[in-house]
């Protein structure tokens, strides 16, 4: 119904005063957290410039600007799409 593919830009580090002053650190921490969530599909995420570098298991890489594009890239590059509700322990 809504036609939106996602808008998460406001979730980035600007919400946290200590990180807003150091965007590179905020980006690095977010990349690290995303990397853990994407690891099962063989995908790695790292901070890159003003955005992120997403690398799949075959070495294919995409550069993205925000979290919405990041997860779309993880879906394209990974062996499987990560679902945080799966693998409930």
């Amino acid at each position: 119904m809504c036609g939106l593919c996602g808008s998460f830009t406001d979730l980035q580090w600007s919400a946290v005063p200590t990180l807003a002053a150091r965007p590179a650190l905020g980006r690095a921490r977010l990349a690290e957290a995303a990397s853990k969530l994407a690891a099962d599909g063989g995908v790695r995420v790292s901070a890159w410039g003003q955005g992120f570098r997403v690398t799949g298991p075959t070495g294919r890489t995409e550069l993205v600007g925000d979290l919405a594009a990041l997860w779309a890239a993880v879906d394209r590059l990974g062996r499987a799409s990560p679902d945080p509700l799966e693998n409930a322990s």
């Binding site: 996602g6 998460f8 979730l11 980035q12 580090w13 919400a15 946290v16 990180l19 905020g26 921490r29 977010l30 690290e32 957290a33 995303a34 853990k36 969530l37 979290l67 919405a68 990041l70 997860w71 779309a72 799409s81 990560p82 679902d83 945080p84 509700l85």
Partner: peptide
Amino acid sequence: VEWSRFAAWLSLLLHRHG
């Protein structure tokens, strides 16, 4: 909580199940 973990988790949750 650590914001980066929360932001990554919520964005993936909404990406997958929005």
